[in-house]
Structure formats: C-alpha cells, structure tokens
Design a protein around this nucleic acid. Structure first.
Length: 314
DNA sequence: TAATCGTGGTT
DNA sequence: TAACCAAGATT
C-alpha cells in the first residue's frame, strides 16, 4: 500500500479550524497507480533488470500497433542477434526484414536499422537520453522518444500512447473513449504524476499498464481498478461514447494485404524470385503491380539486373 | 488533417 | 462472422 500523504501544511493550519481535524486526504491518483503497478505489473522481457536503453528502444518500435504477445519472441531473437546499435548497423535490409517476420508494418524494420546506423555514426553507438535527439531518429516519434527516455533511461517523462489517452479520457475527463491525440494530452497526464522523479518515471509505465490490463477499450474491469473511486467516467455513471463511431479500418482486399502477400513470398524464398512467382500472391495484376512498385519505392524490395525480385541486399 | 501502412487474436 | 483492437509514425 501507499504511504499515506502527510497532512498538508496549509495556511489555515495556523488558525483554529475544522480542517486540521479532518481525516488525512486520500493518496493522489499518481501514487495509487505507482503502488498498484508494483504488484500488478506484467513480467515482460524488456522490463527485466539489466535491459539497456537500446533493448528498450527496439521493444518500443516493435510494440507500435503490435500486441505484446507477438513481439516477445521476435524481440528476444533480435536482441540475441543484434545486442547493440553497432551490431544492427552492420546487418543488411534483407536480414532485418526476414528477422522482423510477420510483426507487420515492415518499414519499421528498415527504420530501426537506419536508427542503428544513425546512432553508430552520430551518437557513438549510444542511445541518447534527450527526447529531442531521440525524436530526430527514423521511426521514433513523440511517443517512442519519451518511452525510451523514461523506460530506458529512467527519466521522469510523461508518456502518451493509446492506453494513456483512454485512461485520461475516462479518469480525468469522464468520457468513454479517448479523443484523437492532441498536444495537451502530455500535460493532462503530467499533472497526475508524483513529484518525486523516480516515482514519476514509474507512474508513466503504471498508467500505460492500467490501460493495458484494467482500463481496456472494450470491457473495462472497473471492479478491480485501483482508482475507480476517483474516476470521472464512473462518477458520471459510465456514459456511452458521444461522438460518431470511429471507422474500422478494412484490411481484406487493400494494398496493405497485397503488400503483405508479396513480401511474404520474398521472405520465404531463398534468394531472388521471378515475376511469375509473385503473380501467385495476388490475382489482380493492376493492384499487384502498384503494390510491388510501392514496395520498391519503400526499399523493402529490390529488382536485380536480370529482372528478378529480392529483399534488398544492402 | 486524414490516409496509409500488416497481422492475427478476440468478441 | 464481421468487427474490433493492439506501447504510432509518416506524409
């Protein structure tokens, strides 16, 4: 349990006032969440002691829009093969695309490799702790930069991902769903953080963990929520989402599916592949050609001098 | 700003 | 079964 907060030394304590006889105020939400995290946190591979900032960075990029369960085995494999930025910088694009497997959004694999090169060439092979320097790296945006600074370097950085936006929407704003991301999200969550820097750093993971385990999107588990008595959404009677329903992203039949099929053929092949082999991946020749072009443009596929296709050698 | 970019488990 | 959902970034 949390240490109870000492009584506030407010100015009216100097006079005889009923305030000084009130029971101690409840722990701030931030402290409650930090203490909840200490007992409820998942034992994830990248949270083990000794995980360095590079390993955290790799995990964060893999976790972008990708469930934890699918990331774990791939992350272990990557860290075995490329335990440092310098190690990854020597790998070829083909190698990292294959090692990425079916995590999805394979451009992340290329950008991660580019980040390794940038760290090697411009940062002495070290992952910076500075948010701005991190954000300048390929594939590292506002979320991932702060996540690496916080989880990798222990900095007290506010971190906002989809989990945090949902928790803040309910807990603070009393809404059922997270609004689209905005700049103020950062301060929304920052004001909840404990003042102590170490606890503030733990708080950032704790809020995310609450969103991942308890304050989940579909069916929140309010009965076991450590901050249910503070929750504005619950106090408002758990109102339904107000705005129009968000569009679901279709997948079947899209270019994304076709790109995935094409890349899957190339990942599975030993060396290069002739065009007719790619034809089997998708029937519609127009769409297939468009997608192959986009893969070439993205640097995920390469054409050889004799017209065959391969994963890029480097 | 909104569209695009994979994949597969869950409901 | 179709829809939902998952530690976002980029253009």
């Amino acid at each position: 349990m949390a240490a109870r907060r000492p009584p506030q030394a407010a100015h009216w304590d100097l006079v005889d006032s009923p305030a000084r006889t009130l029971p101690p105020s409840p722990d701030p939400v931030g402290d409650v969440l930090v203490d909840w995290f200490a007992e409820a946190a998942r034992d994830l591979a990248w949270r083990r002691p000794g995980t360095d900032p590079w390993a955290v960075l790799v995990s964060e990029v893999m976790l972008q829009q990708t469930p934890v369960a699918r990331v774990e085995p791939v992350w272990r494999d990557w860290m075995d093969r490329w335990p440092t930025p310098v190690a990854l910088a020597t790998a070829s694009p083909a190698e990292v695309i294959r090692a990425w497997g079916k995590l999805g959004y394979p451009r992340r694999a290329l950008r991660l490799r580019e980040t390794a090169v940038a760290l090697t060439e411009r940062h002495g092979g070290v992952v910076p702790a500075d948010v701005a320097a991190l954000e300048a790296l390929p594939g590292i945006g506002t979320y991932t930069a702060r996540a690496v600074a916080c989880f990798g370097h222990g900095q007290p950085q506010p971190v906002v991902d989809t989990n945090v936006r949902r928790v803040v929407a309910r807990l603070v704003h009393g809404r059922a769903e997270a609004a689209p991301a905005r700049a103020a999200d950062l301060t929304d969550v920052a004001v909840l953080a404990p003042a102590d820097p170490e606890r503030a750093a733990r708080f950032s993971v704790a809020v995310m963990e609450l969103g991942a385990l308890v304050c989940v999107a579909r069916t929140p588990r309010c009965a076991v929520c450590p901050v249910r008595t503070d929750c504005a959404w619950r106090l408002a009677g758990c109102p339904a989402p107000d705005g129009p329903p968000r569009r679901v992203q279709r997948f079947a039949g899209t270019d994304r599916q076709v790109r995935g099929r094409l890349l899957d053929v190339l990942r599975g092949a030993e060396g290069s592949v002739a065009a007719p082999q790619l034809d089997e991946a998708w029937a519609d020749a127009v769409q297939r050609s468009r997608c192959l072009d986009s893969l070439l443009a993205d640097g995920l596929v390469e054409q050889t001098a004799d017209g065959r296709f391969t994963l890029p050698a480097g």
